[in-house]
């Protein structure tokens, strides 16, 4: 679980504020709005298209840590944290992390850009998930190598547990 609490005396509140500050200095952040005018939902094929368009081919599964709930408490604002345990040096670093959702009207959720100055390739955001679907995370390194990982998030109608 992310740096949620009590760790090293840094509260989540401060982490969020400092993230905002860091973003201005070192991180360019683009959030693509999740809901477009189209009614149809994206498909796995559409997600594949977006990835191959960016990378030329589908990358292999890799060690990307995705922190997402298995079942969303509120599909309108689902917290997501992504982290890649990789050195962030001038020679080799994580350059982009792209987040896609295969059941939203538009598959693109967010893209994060990094430089070695970030020190760590991690990002947090919240997104809207309109239904149960897979969230796919793709990471591209500075040398062009890429990897991906995914996790299913259920968006349920609720009730009946217990």
């Amino acid at each position: 679980m992310l740096d949620t609490q009590e760790t090293g005396g840094t509260s989540r509140r401060r982490v969020l504020f400092s993230l905002g500050g860091a973003a201005a200095v070192a991180t360019g952040l683009t959030v693509v709005p999740g809901l477009g005018p189209r009614l149809a939902h994206a498909t796995e094929a559409e997600v594949t298209d977006v990835i191959t368009e960016m990378l030329g081919e589908m990358p292999a599964e890799g060690a990307i840590s995705i922190d997402l709930p298995e079942i969303a408490e509120n599909g309108n604002t689902v917290p997501l944290s992504v982290e890649i345990d990789a050195p962030m040096t001038a020679d080799s670093y994580v350059q982009d992390i792209m987040v896609l959702a295969d059941g939203n009207p538009s598959p693109r959720v967010a893209q994060f850009h990094f430089t070695p100055m970030n020190g760590k390739a991690s990002a947090s955001t919240r997104m809207r998930l309109v239904q149960t679907q897979n969230v796919v995370v793709v990471a591209r390194m500075s040398d062009g190598q890429a990897m991906m990982a995914s996790k299913q998030v259920k968006v349920t109608i609720g009730g009946c547990g217990g």
Binding site: I71, A72, G161, G162
Partner: peptide
């Protein structure tokens, strides 16, 4: 605590 309290019960 029960992990899905706000889903199985009213949020």
């Amino acid at each position: 605590a029960f992990p899905y309290t706000p889903i199985a019960n009213p949020r």
